[in-house]
Computed example of a mutant assay.
Amino acid sequence: MYNSVRTFSFLFGYLPMAAVNLKKFQAQKEILSKQEYDALIHTEPQKWAKGILKRTKSRIETSGLENLPDGPALLVANHEGNFDIPVLLSEIPKPFGFISKKEVKKFPVIPVYMEDMNCVFLDRTDRRSAYKSITDTAQKLKDGHSILIFPEGTRSKGEGISDFKTGFVRIAKDAGVPIVPIAIHGTSDIMEKNNNKIRPGHVTIRVLEPVLAETVEKTEAKQLIELVRKTVETEVQSMAQEKADLK
């Protein structure tokens, strides 16, 4: 319970400072390159995410950062828990936006940051919104920004990886960018497996070898979906076994 209070207090208590910093950042937007501004904006969410994770007292282990390519890329990860986004923001040095539920727009400050991070908002109840999110995400990538997507659509809560939906392949093919598979294990131990109470977890992240844009272009969609899903699933299973062996 104490960890939960500390974490949520920081989550919302940090917003006034974030709002002040956002105004400072936006004042520099016209004089910075697109890549420089993305990197600047990324510093605040990364600081926020690190602060949240520090208060959960979780241990994070990350490897494979050398597999992050230069230039825009579609980051594709399994979706285990609510802490996937904070963990990835805190550990991945490459600036990225992500697809988020439109309900987040009701929060103060956060959606403004997300827009500058090049996030895309999705209304899950509207098919036209789902289609638009695909085209909007592809355009963000074409404009030179990296995007993270969870193709399972919903959290697995640590109970295996579900089927990957086809949208991420359409996005990558349309944008002509590489796909970077990312395997996450352990985020559900922080919250979902504790009746939504926050507890310390041991999270491992592995950034895997990218599927080059040339391969994305020439590979059939079904094969590409299976390739990326199997790559992530195999690594998640390996991480789970490694942790089991340590117990």
Score class of each variant (00 low, 15 high):
Arg59Pro: 00
Leu227Gln: 14
Gln241Thr: 08
Phe10Thr: 01
Asn195Ile: 07
Ser4Lys: 09
Arg199Ala: 06
Pro210Thr: 08
Gly13Leu: 07
Glu44Pro: 00
Ala172Gly: 03
Leu22Phe: 02
Ile31Val: 15
Leu122Pro: 05
Ala172His: 03
Asp38Ala: 08
Leu224Ile: 04
Thr62His: 03
Phe98Glu: 00
Gly176Asp: 09
His42Asp: 14
Leu224Val: 02
Lys140Asp: 00
Ile99Leu: 15
Glu66His: 13
Ile41Asn: 01
Ser58Ala: 09
Ser238Met: 11
Gly71Glu: 08
Gly158Lys: 08
Leu22Trp: 01
Glu209Gly: 13
Arg55Gln: 06
Pro200Asn: 06
Cys119Met: 09
Glu159Val: 03
Gly81Cys: 09
Leu208Trp: 02
Lys29Trp: 13
Asp189Pro: 06
Phe121Gln: 12
Lys230Ile: 00
Lys222Glu: 12
Asn118Gly: 04
Lys47Met: 07
Leu122Met: 13
Met114Glu: 12
Thr154Arg: 13
Leu227Arg: 07
Ser146Cys: 12
Thr125Val: 04
Lys105His: 13
Val87Asn: 07
Tyr14Val: 13
Ser146Thr: 14
Pro111Asp: 11
Arg206Gly: 01
Pro95Asp: 10
Asn195Val: 06
Tyr2Ile: 12
Arg199Asp: 01
Ala175Gly: 11
Ile110Asp: 06
Ile110Cys: 06
Leu74Ile: 05
Gln28Arg: 15
Asp245Gln: 12
Glu66Gln: 15
Ser58Trp: 00
Arg55Ser: 00
Met114Asp: 12
Ile149Pro: 03
Ser188Ile: 01
Glu159Trp: 05
Ser58Lys: 03
Val228Arg: 05
Lys132Arg: 15
Leu141Ala: 11
Thr231Glu: 06
Asn195Glu: 15
Tyr131Val: 15
Phe121Asn: 11
Pro178Lys: 11
Met17Val: 12
Ala138His: 06
Leu68Lys: 01
Ala213Pro: 06
Gln46Trp: 02
Leu68His: 06
Tyr2Asp: 13
Glu103Lys: 12
Asp126Val: 06
Tyr131Ser: 11
Gly97Pro: 03
Ser238Phe: 10
Val104Pro: 10
Tyr2Ser: 11
Glu61Gln: 10
Ala18Ile: 08
Ala39Gln: 13
Val211Gln: 01
Thr215His: 05
His42Ser: 10
Lys247Cys: 14
Lys132Gln: 15
Lys24Trp: 03
Lys24Arg: 15
Val207Asp: 00
Pro69Val: 08
Thr219Gly: 07
Lys57Ala: 02
Asp84Lys: 05
Lys47Val: 01
Tyr37Pro: 07
Gly13Pro: 09
Asn21His: 12
Ser58Met: 07
Val203Leu: 10
Pro86Cys: 09
Ile182Ser: 00
Asp126Trp: 04
Met239Phe: 12
Lys218Leu: 09
Val87Asp: 11
Phe96Gln: 04
Gly13Tyr: 10
Tyr37Glu: 11
Asn78Cys: 05
Glu91Ile: 03
Pro72Ile: 12
Pro86Gln: 10
Asp174Ile: 08
Leu53Ser: 00
Tyr113Met: 09
Ile184Asn: 02
His42Ile: 04
Gln28Met: 12
Glu36Gly: 13
Leu88Arg: 03
Asn3Gly: 04
Pro108Asp: 12
Lys34Tyr: 06
Ala213Phe: 13
Pro178Phe: 01
Ala77Arg: 03
Val76Leu: 09
Pro111Met: 08
Ile161Cys: 07
Leu122Gln: 09
Ser4Pro: 09
Ala183Gln: 06
Leu208His: 00
Ser162Ala: 15
Pro95Thr: 00
Ala73Glu: 00
Gly186Asn: 05
Asp163Ala: 14
Pro151Leu: 13
Thr43Ser: 14
Thr234Gly: 05
